[in-house]
Amino acid sequence: MEALFATTTGILAASGLYLALRGRTFPVVVGLTLLSYAVNLFLFSTGGLTTDGSAVIGDGGGEYADPLPQALVLTAIVIGFAMTAFSVILAMRVRGDVGSDHVNGNRVDEPREDKS
């Protein structure tokens, strides 16, 4: 399971990073979202991966999952959601204000209809 988990996190992070480095605002936002998924998964795994353990401390006192990373990742997910929503709106605002969806504001490739 560790290998699968690590691969998934790695692929998510790599795709996210690639998209975040693109020139247009939409891929950048999607990239940031993927990156935040990868980070959340990573944070979740820092307490060690437990299968069939009780959520906090069970009856037998046997194996249990570390609750702290769960709390941390919950906070991180909430913040990540809010930030994704914010950056989507912001990207649209940039498109409207600057008249281009390129991160540097360049007008590139296909001509767009004039907004006036």
């Binding site: 975040a20 605002t25 950048v28 940031l32 990156l35 935040s36 913040i79 930030m83 914010f86 950056s87 912001l90 990207a91 605002r93 940039v94 204000d97 600057v98 991160v103 504001g105």
Partner: peptide, 15 residues
């Protein structure tokens, strides 16, 4: 807005 988008993206990566 333009400076803001750069600022937000960078700080999100920082977070």
């Amino acid at each position: 807005t333009h400076a803001g988008f750069h600022y937000v993206t960078l700080n999100l990566l920082g977070s």
